[in-house]
């Protein structure tokens, strides 16, 4: 996946993580949300009612950017710092497993 929305380029030595199976570069210290933002992915979470949401408050309060990280559901993308090899899945909900349209 291509990062197209960075305000300034990433410094050298990026790490790699996987978003829905695709590898993407990330900088140490940044959040999972900033990687999702940078690749332009905005439909992030599926709540228990099947409704899709994107990042909203950006500060850990609204729970609208919940993604699965390394197999654990309902992790706040905006509050989680990236780690090498991290696997991020969007639009997953263990209660409401409807396939995204």
């Amino acid at each position: 996946m291509e990062r197209t929305l960075d305000i300034q380029p990433l410094a050298a030595d990026p790490i790699t993580l996987h978003i829905n199976g695709s590898p993407v570069n990330a900088a140490p210290g940044e959040t999972v949300l900033s990687v999702l933002n940078a690749v332009g992915l905005r439909q992030l979470a599926r709540n228990d009612h099947g409704q899709v949401s994107g990042a909203f408050c950006g500060m850990g309060v609204c729970h609208c950017c919940l993604v699965a990280i390394d197999g654990r559901a309902k992790r706040r993308a905006c509050q989680t710092v990236v780690r090498p090899g991290m696997r991020v899945e969007t639009l997953v909900n263990p209660i409401c497993s409807e396939v995204p349209a």
Partner: peptide, 24 residues
């Protein structure tokens, strides 16, 4: 208001200040 792409203003400011990423 619940559509992806609608954000709170401070949340968008955080995106540019701390995440260093432009909105789409």
């Amino acid at each position: 208001w619940t559509l992806p792409g609608v954000m709170l203003l401070g949340g968008l400011q955080l995106q540019i200040k701390s995440n260093v990423v432009k909105p789409l």
